[in-house]
């Protein structure tokens, strides 16, 4: 009897899924993963990889996107380590192309293969950017006047590049995709989106 109690205490201390002990606590991560794998049968390796959250997503999922202070710092540091900067150090590309990328939601859906054009950033799905585009979403904050409000400073340009590349460096467990880290956009495309935000000539700032 004592042995069983001890084993239970040990298992609890080891952080075994609560579902093993209380029925209404919800499924364990392993149970959820198994249900997800069964729901998407017959995948090749590349597609199967999409089913598995990486370390950062595991931490965000486990904390309902509100990580503890320690995990917050861990995610921030990991994100910073993923960012690749252009060789020549120039972070601002063409705002005209950035606007096209902001409009396009193309890419990486299962109907988008083989690719018929470049991936988009789909910024307008969630953000207000230029005053001319009235069809914008509100899941993210308005970015109208983004560069102007930041005096077009060099630090703000770098921060904008990093936020598009991997938003978890600034906002751990952000809802925004990691466009650079996850290979959605290229470095040149990210530079174009930075231009849309930070170029004084961009309609975002006029």
């Amino acid at each position: 009897m004592r042995t069983i109690a001890f084993a239970v205490a040990l298992a609890l201390a080891a952080g075994l899924p609560a579902a093993a002990f209380a029925q209404d606590e919800g499924p364990s991560t392993a149970e959820v993963d198994a249900v997800i794998e069964a729901a998407f049968p017959g995948l090749d390796e590349e597609w199967a990889a999409r089913l598995a959250p990486d370390e950062t997503m595991e931490q965000c999922n486990a904390s309902a996107n509100v990580p503890s202070d320690a995990v917050f710092e861990e995610i921030r540091a990991r994100a910073a380590g993923t960012i690749v900067y252009p060789d020549d150090g120039v972070l601002v590309g063409s705002w005209e192309n950035g606007e096209k990328l902001a409009q396009s939601g193309y890419g990486m859906r299962f109907s988008d293969y083989p690719p018929r054009r470049e991936n988009g950033g789909n910024c307008y799905a969630c953000h207000q950017l230029t005053p001319q585009e009235v069809s914008y979403g509100t899941l993210g904050p308005s970015l109208m006047g983004y560069g102007k409000l930041r005096d077009y400073s060099e630090e703000a340009v770098k921060a904008a590049y990093e936020k598009v590349y991997n938003p978890h460096m600034a906002f751990p467990c952000s809802m925004m995709p990691r466009f650079g880290t996850n290979g959605v956009l290229t470095i040149d495309q990210i530079k174009d989106i930075v231009a849309l935000l930070m170029d004084p000539a961009s309609p975002v700032n006029r």
């Binding site: 997800i36 309902a64 969630c126 069809s135 509100t138 899941l139 995709p177």
Partner: peptide
């Protein structure tokens, strides 16, 4: 509920990314 909140894939989306607040929009 667990699936609704589970983020994965190249965009890190879950159902909750778009459906966990009132009055929000994608585009219009």
């Amino acid at each position: 509920e667990a699936l609704f909140n589970r983020r994965s894939g190249p965009f890190d989306f879950s159902c909750a990314t778009c459906h966990s607040a009132s009055g929000q929009r994608i585009r219009l």
